[in-house]
Design a binder for these strands. Structure first.
Length: 199
DNA sequence: TCCGTGATTTCC
DNA sequence: GAAATCACGGAC
């Protein structure tokens, strides 16, 4: 029997960029009645706040949607994109500093699990995450959505990084290497974990 | 590669 | 009000 624990507020006392890496290997849990859906994080992106053009809270933009980003570390931020897909983020930093880590891909925790969760939209579909999981405490299972650590270790040498996906509009910020993933993992989205071969 | 799809935000 | 925008994914 594996020993699992919840993440603590102590875990979050690090930069968003650091947390994007620390979250790799951790487990996202969502309760649906008696069932709990789980997935292990294998790909993340950091959104580093008011100076990050790719971040929804760039320039202190504060709307009904981005309100969750202004919560303290450990809150969730779930929003709808392209009219069809939900994206799940973990808020970082202190209250009022709008930074977050986007969870981009999950893999099955148990070998016999079938989990289709490569990409932020698919991931939310797989765990049935939606708007009602927005602005929840991820450190408390009573929220219905939380994070766990089962001791699975991801070493620094297993982590690769690159530019974030789908943020071309963000000018210079689009090139920042704020996307982190487990090197060569089959469930990293769009097989962008392989460097593009030249012809 | 191209485009569906609709909430959110921004532009008058 | 109306128009533009968009942290995507799947069909070609």
């Amino acid at each position: 029997m594996r020993m699992t624990s919840l993440l603590t507020s102590r875990f979050f006392s690090a930069s968003t960029k650091k947390l994007a890496q620390k979250l790799l290997g951790k487990i996202v849990c969502v309760r649906h009645g008696k069932k709990v859906l789980r997935g292990r994080i294998v790909e993340t992106e950091a959104y580093i706040g008011v100076k990050d053009k790719a971040c929804h809270a760039f320039g202190h933009r504060r709307t009904k949607r981005t309100e969750s980003l202004y919560q303290p570390a450990g809150f969730s931020y779930v929003y709808l994109i392209y009219g069809m897909y939900y994206c799940f983020n973990v808020v970082t930093c202190s209250k009022g500093d709008p930074q977050a880590v986007l969870i981009r891909a999950l893999t099955a925790v148990d070998n016999d699990d079938e989990l289709l969760a490569q990409g932020p939209g698919k991931l939310c579909r797989a765990l049935r995450i939606n708007k009602r999981h927005d602005q929840k405490h991820l450190l408390d299972p009573r929220s219905g959505i939380w994070l766990e650590d089962d001791g699975y270790q991801v070493s620094q040498s297993q982590i690769d990084k690159g530019p974030r996906i789908g943020v071309d509009y963000a000018e210079e910020a689009a090139k920042w290497p704020l996307r982190f993933y487990i090197k060569g993992h089959p469930d990293v989205s769009r097989s962008k974990n392989k460097s593009k071969p030249k012809t």
